[in-house]
């Protein structure tokens, strides 16, 4: 992979993913890179990110487990359960591994509000697990809103005193992938970049620029309506959703071009405002998600 790849080489998602796959496989075969271990922890959250991950394409989930990494622990996907699963987690932590974490870390009562298993007859809290595993991990990925900044788990009044991963591991470099949930491409793409080329370029908040560089507003297909002051008054209207509370103008992510569910559609394409789920401070800072007593509609001058 020397230099840039330019047209007439195909630039579709499938073609890009195929080149990525071939590059990774050939490098693994030539011993240039070795398959790394991945530990996927789920803490205080809703498991939404792992479900989103299963919906991945280019690269897809099957490719990830077969070619990119050895998935050593994921409580949602592994066959083992109970103490057996915990033993696998401990065994995996003896080797070198990449740590991916979804969900926030609950601090209240020494983390007892989020117990992820039982070890030697004692409850293992998310706080203990992430502190222990975070210190040894070769790389750390914070996956989704809760892991990056607390997200929904830390929303007011935050009864579990949840915080983002960085608060528990202040010294560690953490690649942050905010989103509620994370798009499978953002996670799998970042992981692939990590394996092939190392840490991707990030902004000052730790988000990979290849996904989080551009405001939704700047690539929104409804931008001309905003510029002309033509605003939707209710859900389902085909014009700019700004007056209903669209957070596209403050949210940096590639949804307008990447889209969701296999690159099919996205919120604004379905006539509902962006709720700013990839923005730090979501959901409290992005509320209200929808509002009807809108500011005045400016007629064309």
């Amino acid at each position: 992979m020397s230099g840039y790849i330019l047209p007439p080489e195909p630039m579709t998602n499938e073609a890009v993913a195929e080149r990525l796959t071939n590059a990774a496989v050939s490098r693994i075969q030539n011993g240039l890179i070795k398959k790394q271990n991945l530990i996927y922890l789920e803490l205080n959250g809703c498991s939404g990110n792992i479900i989103s991950l299963l919906n991945g394409q280019n690269p897809d989930f099957e490719y990830m487990v077969n070619s990119m990494v050895n998935l050593r622990y994921s409580n949602s996907l592994m066959a083992s359960e109970g103490e057996q699963a915990m033993e696998k987690l401990l065994a995996a932590s003896q080797d070198e591994y990449i740590l991916a974490v979804e969900g926030a870390v609950a601090l209240r009562d020494n983390g007892l509000y989020n117990v992820i298993g039982t070890l030697n007859g004692k409850p293992l809290t998310g706080l203990e697990a992430v502190t222990m595993l975070g210190q040894k991990a070769s790389r750390i990925l914070a996956v989704g809103a809760c892991a990056t900044h607390g997200g929904v788990s830390a929303a007011k009044p935050n009864p579990s005193e949840s915080v983002g991963l960085q608060r528990v591991l202040p010294e560690k470099e953490i690649i942050k992938l905010p989103g509620c949930p994370v798009n499978p491409d953002w996670f799998l793409g970042t992981l692939a970049h990590l394996l092939l080329y190392g840490v991707p370029e990030t902004d000052n908040l730790g988000r990979p620029l290849m996904f989080y560089s551009t405001l939704i507003h700047d690539r929104c297909p409804r931008r001309p309506f905003f510029d002309k002051g033509i605003f939707a008054e209710k859900l389902g209207d085909k014009t700019c959703l700004f007056k209903l509370g669209c957070r596209g103008p403050v949210t940096r992510i590639d949804c307008p071009t990447r889209q969701w569910n296999g690159h099919v559609n996205w919120p604004i394409g379905a006539n509902t405002p962006c709720i700013g789920c990839t923005q730090f401070g979501f959901p409290d800072a992005m509320a209200p998600f929808i509002t009807y007593d809108t500011t005045r509609v400016v007629k064309d001058e």
């Binding site: 002051g229 209903l244 800072a285 500011t295």
Partner: peptide, 14 residues
Amino acid sequence: VTNNRTWAAATHFG
């Protein structure tokens, strides 16, 4: 800030 793009629905980061 009525039509300011960062003040959708007259709210801005809470």
